[in-house]
Amino acid sequence: MEPVIELDGLEVCFDGRPILKKLKATLTGRSIGLLGPNGAGKSTLLSTLLGFYPPSAGTARVFGRDVRTHAREVRGLIGYMPENDAFIAGMSGVRFVRLMAELAGLPREQALERAHEAFFYVGLGEVRYRTLGTYSLGMKQSAKLAQAIAHGPKLLFLDEPTNGLDPPARSRMIQLIQEIRDRGDLRLILSSHLLRDVEECCDEVLILKDGNIAAFCNLEEERRANRRFLEIETRGENNGDFLAALERQGCETAPGAQGRIKLIMPDGLEVRQIYQIAAAQNVQVRRLNHKRDSLEDIFLKAMEAGDGRL
């Protein structure tokens, strides 16, 4: 797959203080998550890719174009939804999105048409003629998404898109992002400190800590690999026989306290067969979880690493 972002020793300093430290990575995913605690450098990285901050050293490329030498071209490919409230005062929603689309290079008529479409798409069709200042926080977030997609970018930067949203608004926003991702017309980069948002929307994750890359993983692969790990809670007298039966089927097992068993299933063995084996041994399976090395585990491991590197 064509690399979306290539970071090659990228360093960004403010007043000589390094904020991003020699970042080196190639991001190719359809939907890339930028994770990290507050102050890790996520927004700085997005701002650098947009050309707001000049790199002090190294380079960054977006779809193969250097952000330093081809800043205008790069920005033409990007739709940006900033973290904070960002709008033009005194404008109606649709006029605001139209203005943004025109600034991105769309002719007037197309900009107007797409502004309306974008507003309906994000679910604000009924309020598109209202002044932006009267919008609720959730509506403002959606309006920001509308202006980011109205001009049909190839890459979407979403900086904390669910910030301050209530649960229904958050699920709607996540659903929109998933829809956009699944259409496959554009790639997206989602910066967040909320693991759940990234886990639900992204297939690749770059974890930043103190300006360093703390971890970089492909969530799809992680999910596929994790499917073979199980954690079972059992009740019954014949736990030992059950374990032996599982091992005969090729499982690696690790018994724990109170009937808990961790196991790795071999290829070809299905969960259904585990239940059958348990029934044969007169053992009740009370709980069965796919023991996932979840994004949370990956994130915590990355954060525990002392120097911010895994």
């Binding site: 205008r72 920005r75 409230d85 960002a86 033009i88 991105a104 202006q147 001009h151 930067f157």
Partner: peptide, 18 residues
């Protein structure tokens, strides 16, 4: 000033617009 007060500059400058 309204663009600065409402963080509108990031929206202008995130486009092919210097």
């Amino acid at each position: 000033s309204p663009d600065l007060a409402n963080n509108g500059l990031s929206l202008y400058l995130a486009r092919p617009f210097s």
